[in-house]
Computed example of a mutant assay.
Amino acid sequence: MSDCSVEATGLTKYFGAFKAVDGVDLAVPAGSIYGVLGPNGAGKTTSLRMMLGIIDPDAGVSRLLGGHTPQSVRHRIGYLPEERGLYPGMKAREAIAFMGALRGLDWSEGRRRAAAFMAELGLERVIDEKIRKMSKGMAQMVQLIGSIVHAPDLIVLDEPFSGLDPVNQERLEALVRRERERGATILFSTHVMAHAERLCDRIAIIARAQRRFEGSVDDARALLPMQVRYTPRVAAEASAIRALLPAAAEPHGDAWHFAIGDADVEPLLARITASGFGVTGLSISRPALHDAFVHIVRQVDAGFHADAEDAAIEEAAA
């Protein structure tokens, strides 16, 4: 038995001459919350759909929940697609029970679980309201509950936070954590870094159809140097302060801002302590996941444009 709930190798997909996904590998540990991040159009949705067997890859394979083919374990999967859709004339409770019944859950049990989920999330007031009368975000929460009401082992959510207000985003985050505590594996795609930073055990970043990073959130943040803000207690000439700090340090009012590597932190603190200038304020922090994401994607874009320029030059020369 594999320790991964999702194992995808070399997934590749063309739409005509356009390569939407180019050899993506992914391994999602069982019982984890795993985020697939990337800009719009990077290939996230197509990758998820190939992993789930919704569309066939042109190359590569996907195994789920211990090495099974996607088709053989459909009843153990909960999937929220990017394109939402519910029967507008159904009431929320019935819509959730209906989605559970499609996955083999008894109708009465589905209705019972629907009520429990809605109460837990503070949505019991709309449990018997028709979908057509709900806000877009509220209907999305109903569809989400319907996707997990059968207690799946693997939950796949495609851009689940899109269109939700901050209150429902918090509800969704709580629901994701609850399902992980139950033992489920959660795989979700997003281009909003804050949710991934709070939730994910591991992440993959896809840009221009390829996986460009895989690891923990801290691994991604460690790709960039730490950011330092230092405010001396004793007034001094800027040149004297600058002599303590990295060459790229810049003054901002009374404080100095600069980046620093992990190995340089203790020597910096020793220099500041020995200088006699003292400390009014000192903060040393890792960049956010957002900064690491932008850094990775910009590197990919720069390489892509450089390759395109080289190809154009070669074509012109020919």
Rank of each mutant, 00 (worst) to 15 (best):
S189D: 06
P246N: 13
T273G: 10
D301S: 11
H295A: 10
C200E: 02
E179Q: 13
D201E: 12
A249G: 10
I148W: 04
E120P: 00
A59H: 03
L26F: 04
D301G: 05
S285K: 15
A174I: 06
D106P: 05
T12M: 00
G276T: 10
G35H: 04
V265I: 15
P57H: 00
G253N: 11
R208E: 15
D264R: 10
S72L: 12
G104P: 04
G100N: 06
Q169C: 13
A317W: 08
I241Q: 03
A255H: 12
Q169S: 13
F161L: 07
Q299E: 12
K136H: 15
M1E: 12
V21M: 00
G261S: 14
L223V: 05
E83N: 14
G53V: 03
D219A: 11
E214G: 04
R229D: 07
T273E: 12
L86H: 02
E83V: 11
Q227H: 15
A194P: 00
I33N: 02
A42T: 05
G303H: 13
A194C: 04
S62A: 14
P225H: 11
G303D: 13
S239A: 14
G85I: 13
M99T: 01
A259C: 12
S2D: 14
K136W: 08
G100C: 07
K130H: 12
M99F: 12
G183T: 09
L187F: 14
S189I: 07
R298N: 14
G137N: 10
L123D: 02
A207D: 09
R132V: 09
L86R: 02
P70Q: 09
E7S: 15
R171C: 10
V300M: 08
S47N: 05
M138C: 07
H150D: 04
L245E: 05
T12Y: 00
P251M: 11
G146T: 06
G38Y: 02
A20C: 07
L26T: 02
R177G: 02
A207M: 06
S162G: 10
I241L: 15
G163M: 09
V24C: 01
C4V: 06
I54Q: 03
G23W: 02
R113T: 05
D106R: 12
I272V: 14
S62N: 04
R93Q: 08
E214L: 09
I186Q: 01
S285Y: 12
A114D: 02
T190Q: 04
A259S: 15
T185W: 05
S189H: 06
R286Q: 13
I241A: 11
M193T: 08
L154E: 01
G100I: 04
A222M: 07
S72E: 14
M1Y: 12
S62M: 02
V28L: 08
A302L: 13
A151P: 00
G276K: 10
R93N: 05
Q169L: 06
G43P: 02
A292Q: 04
F117C: 03
D158F: 08
R229L: 15
P287C: 09
A97Q: 03
C4H: 10
A306W: 05
S5R: 02
S147P: 03
A209V: 07
G163Y: 08
Q169W: 03
G78E: 03
P225S: 10
R182C: 07
R74K: 11
D153P: 01
D58K: 00
R202I: 06
F117S: 00
E120G: 15
Y34I: 07
V61W: 00
Q227E: 15
